[in-house]
Write a protein that binds this DNA or RNA. Structure first.
Lengths: 360, 360
DNA sequence: TTGAAAGCGTTACCAT
DNA sequence: ATGGTAACGCTTTCAA
């Protein structure tokens, strides 16, 4: 029926008098109709100028761009989304920021999403119960896809499938569900750590696990235990932390109570707890590291490289993993029916000074 | 002219047959027309049911909610934004994530924005040159407001004003421009640190500044120098870091070269550099802290509290500041013409063990 | 290549 | 309280 636009957009009119680009007072937003009027072309032409690969004559393009610049016009992405049925949003779900290496992950993911031409809609999920609320917003804002660094249960995953919104998990795997994910190879990393520790002669191990509901920490812990068993080491003391530094300190003392003084090595599910263990061992128990006790972590967060620590750990290739996650998502936004894929990245063993390691 | 909707939305029709909520296959998104048809009411009524405070009879509400639930309907926020002219987006601009305390800030801001009923559109600005691109996206997505933890120049600020998009700065102040901001009271914090250090008898000071273009570090550094001068201490050695841990290490050695062995106290523009200074001093130069050297930082980032450091620093009240930033923004979204306001928060002096302090 | 008109899914404003 | 229709700002046919 042809829209009847505001005959006279006062903001635009004011700007017409100016010659400075985008510094004019503009009470109401400039639309393509305003630009069309100034450029003396149709609104369709304005649209085409801002549509990559559309056919417009050089003359029209010139006039439109001049008018647009003069008025400070930017196409309204919201209106565009409505008609194209693609929001251009990627939902980014991240959990409580206890993880030391999250800032890196976040900034890499954000960069990747921007580079892919999408916008980041950020949701921090502090507790599991918030997830449903967050999902509601995701649906309302018609996100094209989601990168999740949080837990999603089976029902929630089904809802993604029904709505045909692709999800890629970052370092999380929903249990019993084939889903697309990029993760560091937890098992392989633990295997290498354990092998090298055992090769150095360690026999009495303590393990500091992460939160009970965290699949990542569970997998790391279980891999470590399995590998120790492989080496004939069956009795291992296990305590659980919450991924935070303080819980590493507590875990160390708990281990000492349970395992006694002949504890030789502590394997932690992440770096933050490992640093806590190191501090408790050295500064509270008076142990020398690594002479009296070896400590290893997982992730390769920045503080683990600081001089006070020199933590021996498995470094995640964060940038590559983030890029992969984005690439896998982009692929699935374009072709929603690609089958789920799980991509495993080998971490790099960082030989710090917090553990005595034998030959690989 | 009255929209003529898809007469038969196949996805919705399929779902009608099911009784499970939201688990049915749905090739195309469910709209309010689909819900209206199933509930046997007008589309307007559906809209009202999802509009808080609109008048609908209990009977209609019941039928609509039942149909909506059955179809897995969620109102399309994008379409809503188009007509209401409010996107519900708050743009969050954060810089390179070198700052240790950014994770906390980010998660607090994100929470605050969600609580205010808005969505977070995240932009990480790795370099100044990206800012223009980011702003373009902000305009296109019609953000209701922006919280900026990055630098914006005068022209960019003018553009915000012209477009009537309110900005609140977090710990940044654009030079020579009245803008709304929430910052920790850098000057007051440095003053307290310096006073206590001087009271303990320190006379030979070194200062580790931040990046040259960073107003925050500039203000901290200059406040410190001014306060030292107030105490009659005029000759101070100043070196510049980049806010990162490693630059703290480098800064320490640079200070020693320039100031010599009688350096007594090092005042750093942030915690990360202070931790680098501590490590370099203790582990590379063999100094005892605080007996041979006092070190103080600024921010109160988590690692500064770790046992290995116990950094004496000024802790930002991050939560309160984030809440204030969000509140100030929300206020300005509602009433765009409120005058700029700068809110200063006093930091808390954390008496760690990295510095000898005299009586306050 | 260009312009006119139809729609994307919602809210706003009318009548009833 | 309810239903009908106009509009939000854009992209996308379809003719010319």
């Amino acid at each position: 029926m042809g829209r009847k636009p505001r005959e006279n957009n006062p903001g635009a009119v004011m700007a017409e008098l100016e010659d400075t680009p985008s510094t004019a007072a503009r009470p109401t937003a400039v639309t393509s109709y305003d630009v069309a009027r100034v450029a003396r072309v149709s609104q369709s032409s304005v649209s085409r100028v801002f549509t990559p690969g559309a056919s417009v004559s050089p003359e029209v393009r010139r006039r439109v761009l001049r008018a647009a610049n003069q008025l400070g016009y930017q196409p309204n992405a919201i209106a565009r989304s409505l008609i194209t049925r693609r929001s251009g949003f990627v939902g980014l779900l991240i959990g409580a920021s206890t993880n030391l290496y999250y800032p890196e992950v976040l900034s890499e993911l954000s960069r990747g999403i921007s580079d892919a031409g999408s916008r980041v809609l950020l949701f921090t999920v502090d507790s599991e119960s918030e997830t449903e609320t967050v999902l509601t917003h995701l649906w309302r804002y018609q996100v094209d896809g989601v990168i999740a660094a949080t837990r999603l249960d089976a029902a929630q995953l089904t809802e993604f499938a029904n709505r045909r919104v692709p999800v890629v998990f970052y370092n999380r795997m929903p249990p019993d569900n084939p889903a697309t994910a990029v993760t560091v190879d937890h098992a392989e990393g633990e295997r290498r750590l354990i092998d090298r520790l055992v090769a150095a002669g360690h026999r009495r191990f303590g393990i500091v696990g992460g939160p009970a509901d965290n699949m990542v920490s569970l997998e790391r812990t279980e891999s470590a235990i399995a590998r120790l068993r492989h080496h004939g080491i069956d009795s291992v003391t296990i305590v659980r932390g919450d991924y935070g530094y303080q819980s590493g300190i507590d875990a160390f003392h708990a281990l000492r109570r349970e395992a006694g003084r002949d504890l030789q090595a502590v394997v932690c599910a992440n770096d933050a707890m490992a640093l806590g263990v190191m501090d408790a061992a050295r500064l509270q128990a008076g142990l020398r590291i690594p002479q009296d006790l070896s400590v290893v972590g997982f992730d390769g967060a920045e503080p683990s490289r600081w001089l006070s620590y020199g933590l021996t750990t498995i470094r995640q290739p964060v940038r590559r993993m983030a890029e992969a996650a984005v690439a896998m998502l982009v692929e699935r936004i374009a072709k929603p029916d690609i089958e789920p894929e799980r991509r495993l990245y080998a971490g790099e063993l960082v030989e710090g000074i917090s553990a005595r390691l034998g030959k690989g």
